[in-house]
Simulated assay, not measured.
Amino acid sequence: MIDPVYSAAPDRYHGGMKYRRAGKSGILLPEISLGLWHNFGDVDTLSGSKEKIHHAFDKGITYIDLANNYGPSYGSAEETFGQIMKKSMAPYRDELFISTKAGHDMWEGPYGIWNSRKHLMASIDQSLKRMNLEYVDIFYSHRYDPETPLEETLQALVDIVRQGKALYVGISKYPKEAAEIAYRYLADNHVPCLLYQGRYNLFNREPEEEGILDQASKHGSGFVAFSPLAQGLLTGRYLDGIPDDSRIARGGHLKKEALTEDVLRKIRDLNEIAARRGQTLAEMSLAWLLKDEKVASVIIGASSVKQIDDNLKSLDNTSFCDEEICLINNVLSR
């Protein structure tokens, strides 16, 4: 039953969100997208998840990023989204750009992980069922599999599009050499790679240093950045120590060992630069990514509506003068 309470904001495309072309395609992505890696699993409230997704859409965020094992528990983020999709977002399906992925551990046994055709085909079917969708807009190979022949993985992606289960395909976290093969194989089979999704932030600049950004651009693929705030290190939360409710304190993916004295010093120096720009550290960190036109979109997580709004403030100023770039590079190189 459709939720009669929610009606999308009529000005959702006139509130300041900008859209960027995804490589050489007809797809436009919001500069800020919403990722459901954390805060949307079965350990979170459905009402809170629904509030955040509704609010994001009202602000012009049309790209919702998922994966089969997002949660916790595995699959629960897709289930949560599926409930929201069925009850309130179904009328807006054609305005949404929805992704999912497969390749990390998902179920027991030898076929519940990596990139075999069997795993990818089973995963897309399971994901569509959980999300109450007939198709996703893009299906990603979530990571490179060094054991499965790459052609098997890529042909499965091609067939998923031809079967109508995804409109586009992409790759995530692939090393440059494997990505080159993927771009060429997919293009030769008339299912070009729409997006490359990679970890990219002020503390992790591998996509630019290793040529991943340029490679994607050369092949007509857009680049989508995830972990733009280095799992919270670039939010300013740790300027005065480790908060009790932080990811480090909770013992999640971000470990205490990551917050060294050197990292803390860089965080404080970057925060000073952000303040001079009239931004928070998080706002500047997101803006820094968006200064590059090769970045099609930046995926944020959100534990609250306020956090979404705070991150959207980064769009007010995504330009940097040469002096600011030099200052930031000097901080990061020390």
Rank of each mutant, 00 (worst) to 15 (best):
H55K: 09
L154F: 01
A225G: 10
P192L: 06
F97K: 04
Y92H: 12
L213M: 07
T100V: 06
K24C: 14
G60M: 02
A9G: 08
I113V: 13
I160D: 00
Y63D: 02
T148Y: 07
W107K: 10
W37M: 13
Q83M: 12
A90G: 05
I248H: 05
E108W: 10
S127G: 04
H119S: 00
A8R: 06
Y92F: 14
L29P: 02
I138D: 00
P146M: 14
D65I: 03
T100M: 11
V43H: 15
R21T: 12
P243K: 07
Q155R: 13
Q163K: 12
D44N: 11
G301F: 05
G82P: 11
D125E: 09
H38R: 14
Y168N: 05
H55Y: 15
K118A: 05
A302S: 11
L28N: 11
L254T: 02
S47I: 04
D310E: 12
V5H: 09
Q279A: 07
S123E: 00
K59R: 13
D137V: 02
S73E: 05
M131P: 14
D316T: 15
L239Y: 10
R93Q: 09
C321I: 12
L286M: 08
D292H: 08
G60L: 08
R162T: 01
G23W: 08
L46P: 06
Q197A: 09
R162V: 03
Q307K: 14
G198Y: 09
I84N: 04
H54R: 10
S246M: 13
S99K: 02
N189P: 03
K50L: 13
H55I: 08
V191F: 04
G198D: 10
A179H: 00
G301N: 05
D188T: 11
F81P: 02
S88Q: 14
P10F: 13
S25Q: 12
Y140G: 00
G164H: 08
A102H: 00
L213P: 10
E209S: 14
G236E: 08
G75R: 01
E147S: 15
L213Q: 07
P91H: 14
A287E: 05
T260S: 06
E151R: 03
E152L: 11
P149K: 08
D65N: 09
L327S: 05
S217E: 12
H14Q: 11
K129Q: 09
P228L: 02
V161F: 03
L281Q: 09
G15L: 11
D3E: 06
T318A: 04
T80W: 01
N68S: 12
Y13Q: 05
L195A: 10
S76G: 02
S99V: 15
Y238W: 07
S221T: 13
K18D: 12
M89Q: 07
W114H: 03
V298G: 00
G251A: 14
P146F: 07
F139A: 00
G23M: 06
L66M: 13
D125C: 02
Q155Y: 09
A249F: 11
K129T: 09
K101G: 03
D292F: 11
G26L: 11
D240K: 14
A302N: 06
S88H: 15
D316P: 07
D188C: 06
A302D: 04
F223D: 02
K165Q: 04
G60E: 01
I242P: 10
I267F: 02
A182Y: 00
E261S: 11
Y6E: 04
R162Q: 10
I84H: 01
I267T: 01
W288N: 03
Y111T: 15
